[in-house]
């Protein structure tokens, strides 16, 4: 029997009878981070990093039964040892290490190897088997240094402000929104956040996990001239956006690397900035984990597994109910 297996409920550890990021309802779920394709509603018990507890309650409801653990803290379940380690993806994101009778697996969840300055940076965890995401598992994805992208975003916002136009930045409400916000230089323009982002920020502010402030965008509070709005991409379909002519829209995502996906959004600008590892990041993570067996999931798993095999590793794939992060959300 394998220590972990892929079931139709999600990744399962039979010895401990627990699931990791399951997509169907289960008794006990270990959660890598708060994004909705990893933290699903309806489980009886949740186990996640302490920084994710408030996020889970905010997103899944106050009534959920959730236990928080610290980095490197060991949890034993029926002889299996579980521990959580920083994944560098978003605030509270973890890799989960699973050890039983000397065999070690690591489930990376989503991760990036760049330090974004907002969440706890990625740490290498050695293992025998690594289940790695590979959202950007193609050699065409390579990220520039964050400072360089930040410079471009700030320059763009400044230019818009000077032209009296509002900069509307599309970013995931949890993770990317805070990262982008933190990269904005103070004093360029007043920052507004979409209510979804604003509420997420409030939760993080309360936990002292984030410290930037903004005005909550609503029918009485919106930029009349200039200004910056951070919003989820669904906001692009709102009437306010459709009717507003003094807007410049940008998307911040790793997918902006591809011209086709950038053009498809029909936006003015695309900034390449991702909370996932790029090709080099993935390869570095695999190498430093010292894993002999690599199971690719969430992304271009076939390509990535095949390449791992060529590197002399045992490359395999797991399919998931989710397609990983896609641009069209």
């Amino acid at each position: 029997m394998e220590l972990l297996t892929n079931t139709n409920h999600g990744l399962y550890c039979p010895q401990a009878d627990v699931y990791i990021d399951p997509w169907k309802r289960v008794k006990k779920a270990l959660i890598t981070h708060g994004h909705s394709d990893h933290a699903r509603p309806g489980h009886q018990q949740y186990l996640c990093h302490t920084k994710s507890v408030a996020i889970l309650k905010h997103r899944l409801g106050k009534a959920i039964t959730v236990q928080g653990v610290d980095y490197n803290e060991c949890i034993r379940i029926n002889g299996v040892q579980f521990s959580f380690h920083p994944a560098g993806h978003i605030i509270g994101s973890c890799q989960i290490r699973v050890e039983y009778k000397g065999e070690v697996w690591v489930i990376t969840g989503d991760y990036k190897t760049q330090d974004d300055g907002v969440c706890t940076p990625y740490e290498v965890v050695q293992c025998h088997t690594m289940i790695t995401e590979c959202t950007f598992g193609l050699p065409v994805f390579r990220w520039e240094a964050q400072e360089k992208v930040a410079k471009n975003i700030n320059a763009w916002c400044l230019e818009n402000e000077r032209n009296g136009e509002t900069s509307l930045i599309y970013a995931y409400s949890l993770g990317k929104a805070q990262r982008v916000h933190a990269l904005l230089e103070e004093g360029i323009a007043q920052v507004y956040t979409h209510p979804t982002v604003y509420k997420t920020n409030e939760v993080l502010l309360e936990q002292h996990l984030f410290d930037r402030t903004s005005i909550c965008f609503d029918k009485d509070h919106f930029p009349k001239k200039g200004g910056i709005i951070i919003a989820p991409v669904a906001f692009s379909r709102s009437n306010w956006v459709k009717k507003n002519r003094k807007l410049q829209e940008a998307m911040v995502s790793g997918w902006m690397q591809m011209r086709g996906t950038r053009r498809r959004q029909g936006l003015d600008q695309g900034f390449v900035l991702s909370d996932h590892a790029d090709w080099k990041g993935l390869l570095m993570a695999v190498k430093e984990s010292k894993a002999e067996r690599v199971i690719a999931t969430h992304g271009y798993q076939d390509v990535f597994a095949k390449y791992c095999t060529e590197l002399g590793l045992q490359g395999e794939t797991y399919d998931t109910a989710f397609e990983g992060e896609t641009v069209d959300v």
């Binding site: 193609l138 050699p139 065409v140 994805f141 390579r142 690397q257 591809m258 011209r259 086709g260 271009y300 390509v303 095949k306 390449y307 060529e310």
Partner: peptide
Amino acid sequence: LAGIPLWLFEDSYHIVGDLAETISLC
């Protein structure tokens, strides 16, 4: 030049959908 096998380049090309772009990115 990218230090990758040809099949990996080709697979990337099919996903990016543009040869000139695939080359410049790899």
